[in-house]
């Protein structure tokens, strides 16, 4: 498994505050990766380091096998859609495409033009007059028309309404289907990413809490409900992520690759959101069990 993005002991300090510290992770190629974590976990800092907008204070980061600095050839291989999808409000949509064509040797003007047409954007419209969803689509068009091998998106749908969010992700997935680009999307809400990700990285306080293919994660996490039980009596291959007990009942959120054979448990399947919440609340040191308990619906 080759990594498109690899960080080792990566850290970034602003004056005395560490925005990211001792971050070690590897993001595999050919996936749509969800980078999920609470606000302040260091997601934006990590992505900015990955596109060379910041340089690390500690450790190292490699993107597509190279240092992400301001080397133009390397910049051309990575597409980036920044948070709140900035565009030049005084420039028109057509100006933005011309900007992309001027600044990127690998610019695919046919792709850009047809996407703008498909989205129904008026090329003469100023970017400042576009809706949030349209602006995000414009920023995405700029990022993909340079034909990158890796596309990084920082909270691209956080500020969009549900319809715009769906349309944005549809557009993104069409690009993945057509061009086979690797994608990393960050979000503080896994719900935004559930449909589109096939790999998930949970980042809490700079640290990777969990990383894996979504199918594997869904298959290996379960919610067990049954009579009160001492955790020490569980089989060794069952890792308890969180546990909650009443006088008579135990509710366990566990990870295991083996089938659960104990008939005293009622086994519930969990959604991706349940998994994320369980790991986040475990890291935050809140009462375990609150996360998974919320999301169980059958």
């Amino acid at each position: 498994m080759t990594a498109v993005l690899q960080a080792r002991g990566l850290g970034k300090r602003y004056r005395r505050r560490w925005a990211l510290s001792e971050c070690t992770l590897a993001i595999p190629a050919g996936r749509v990766v969800g980078l999920v974590g609470p606000n302040g976990a260091g997601k934006t800092t990590l992505l900015h380091l990955a596109v060379g907008l910041l340089s690390p204070s500690a450790g190292a980061i490699e993107v597509l096998g190279g240092q992400p600095d301001s080397d133009p050839r390397h910049l051309g291989r990575v597409g980036f859609v920044a948070q709140e999808t900035p565009t030049y409000s005084a420039l028109t949509v057509a100006d933005h495409l011309r900007l992309g064509a001027h600044l990127n040797p690998g610019w695919d003007s046919q792709l850009a033009g047809s996407r703008i047409e498909q989205l129904g954007l008026d090329p003469a419209q100023r970017a400042g007059k576009l809706s949030g969803g349209q602006r995000a689509q414009l920023a995405l068009t700029l990022a993909i028309a340079k034909r990158p091998e890796l596309l990084l998106l920082d909270e691209p749908v956080a500020s969009l309404d549900p319809l715009a969010r769906r349309e944005f992700l549809q557009g993104l997935m069409e690009v993945v289907a057509e061009h086979g680009v690797s994608v990393v999307l960050s979000s503080h809400l896994v719900a935004d990413l559930e449909r589109v990700c096939d790999h998930l990285v949970i980042l809490v306080a700079s640290r990777v809490r969990l990383a894996g293919d979504v199918d594997d994660l869904l298959a290996s996490h379960h919610l067990l409900i049954g009579p009160r039980r001492d955790l020490a009596t569980l089989p060794d291959n069952q890792q308890v992520i969180s546990a909650r007990h009443t006088d008579r009942q135990s509710t366990l959120f566990i990870r295991t690759d083996a089938p659960i054979l104990d008939p005293s448990w009622t086994v519930e399947q969990v959604s991706l959101e349940d998994i994320v919440l369980a790991y986040m609340s475990q890291a935050a040191g809140t009462r375990p069990g609150r996360g998974p308990g919320l999301g169980v619906q059958r």
Partner: peptide, 15 residues
Amino acid sequence: SGTYRLAWTQSVSRT
């Protein structure tokens, strides 16, 4: 306005 994040991630060095 944050547009530096757009400008500096095109295939052109900051210099």
